[in-house]
Simulated assay, not measured.
Amino acid sequence: MTALWKTWGARCALAFGIAAAALPGAQAQLLVGQTVGITGSAAITVKESMLGASLYLDHVNATGGVQGQKIELLALDDRFDPQLTLENARTLIEDKGVLALFMTRGTPHTQGIIPLLDKHGVPLVGPSTGAMVLHQPVPRNVFNIRAPYQREVEKAIAHLALLGVQHIGVVHVDDTFGEDGLAGAQKGFQANQLKALFVEKFDRAKPDFSAIAPRVRSREPQAVIFIGTGAAVVSGIQALRAAGVGGQILTLSNNASGGFVKALGEQARGVVVTQVFPSERSLNYPVIKEAQGLAKARGLKELTPAMVEGFVNAKVLVEGLRRAGPRPDRVRLHAALEGLSKFDVGGLELSYSSTDHTGLDFADLSIISTDGRFQR
């Protein structure tokens, strides 16, 4: 078991702990912070994305680190609570002095720490959110890697329209993430000369679908786009099915994890999940082949989309640290990241500039098969 994975388990046991990811006996010298919902409604996907990141970070440390320096990942559990995200970020930046933050999760969570990032000039690499507000206007210290949610939703609606599906409803969480996804849906409807059959929203902190599900059933949708996170989406899909909703259900890439499929149980089959990285089984992409090799060496049977996201994010972080020189600081790391141009992540090309921090523009669709896999 690797150091990062062991610390993940330790944090779960402590509920709100701090731990490091250095190799045994090695003193970490490049300190990176993470605040993420290790517990809470996003935990099932967070677990897998962190494992994917650890595959690459542990590999780098085991082969000499970055210019002889080990990478230490200091993680705090924010329980998927935006207020705790802010408190944790402040601790990591002001008290622990991290070089960068890495792979936060949640739209309001990430939005809330931007003033703190800007105040201290701390880069955030690979937030696990595709909110457009993190792309335009360009936040100086946020370096996105995944494509925007709006692109995912537009692609999903275009696919449905191509199949002749016209009666499409939207159920979304009532926060900035949900609003962003809804904006993408409206663009998708407009581009395909359609209108939303209905729009329903639910509370992020206390999701309740007892009233929403019957209303959705009464509209007899051919498809429902479900915008939300983890446990809430699982509960919502189960409620819709229990109410007799029989149309196609689609959700976004933030739910692309094996844990999400397992939590859905019998209701998983046939759910469409948008994706922002290549298939975890596509050996045509060198990055997937590399991740599969490291996963096999770790004793893991297979990758999941969330693990791929963590792996790719870690590769970009490490490249930034490498280009920041032998004595990196926040300023040098920012300059190194912003100077990445046509960086080959492994079959995926990523570029940043002072006017573009979007990263990748990859979007695809998958469907959960009878064996619980994401089929492209």
Rank of each mutant, 00 (worst) to 15 (best):
A268P: 03
A268R: 13
A268C: 08
R269K: 15
G270E: 07
G270M: 04
G270K: 01
V271N: 04
V272Y: 13
V272T: 11
V272E: 11
V272D: 03
V273W: 03
T274R: 01
T274A: 10
T274Y: 09
T274Q: 07
T274P: 01
T274W: 03
Q275C: 00
Q275E: 15
V276N: 07
V276G: 10
F277W: 03
F277T: 15
F277P: 00
S279L: 14
S279F: 11
S279T: 05
E280D: 14
E280S: 14
R281I: 14
R281M: 09
S282P: 01
S282N: 15
L283C: 04
N284Y: 04
N284F: 01
K289Q: 14
E290T: 14
A291W: 00
A291Q: 10
A291F: 02
Q292A: 07
G293E: 13
G293T: 12
L294Q: 07
L294I: 08
A295Y: 01
A295L: 01
K296I: 10
K296Q: 15
K296P: 00
K296M: 12
A297R: 12
A297Q: 15
A297V: 02
A297H: 02
R298K: 13
R298A: 15
G299P: 03
L300S: 06
L300K: 01
L300I: 14
L300W: 15
L300M: 13
K301A: 15
K301N: 12
E302N: 13
L303R: 05
L303W: 04
L303Q: 00
T304H: 00
T304P: 03
P305G: 05
P305I: 12
P305L: 06
A306P: 02
V308Y: 12
E309L: 06
G310A: 11
G310W: 05
F311A: 08
V312P: 02
V312K: 00
V312W: 03
N313M: 14
A314K: 01
A314Q: 05
A314M: 03
A314L: 07
A314I: 06
A314R: 02
K315W: 01
K315P: 01
K315S: 02
K315M: 14
K315V: 02
V316M: 13
V316P: 03
V316E: 06
V316C: 05
V318Y: 01
G320C: 10
G320L: 10
L321A: 06
L321E: 06
L321I: 12
L321Y: 12
L321D: 04
R322I: 10
R322A: 10
R322N: 15
R323M: 09
R323C: 10
R323S: 04
R323A: 11
R323F: 07
A324C: 08
A324I: 10
P326F: 05
P328F: 12
P328V: 13
P328W: 11
D329F: 04
D329Y: 06
R330Y: 09
L333W: 06
L333H: 07
H334D: 10
A335R: 12
A335L: 14
A335D: 15
A335P: 06
A336R: 03
A336V: 04
A336W: 03
A336H: 02
L337R: 08
G339F: 02
G339D: 06
L340P: 04
L340K: 05
L340N: 09
L340H: 09
S341V: 12
S341T: 14
S341H: 15
K342G: 12
K342W: 01
V345W: 02
V345F: 05
G346S: 09
G346H: 05
G347S: 06
G347M: 09
G347C: 11
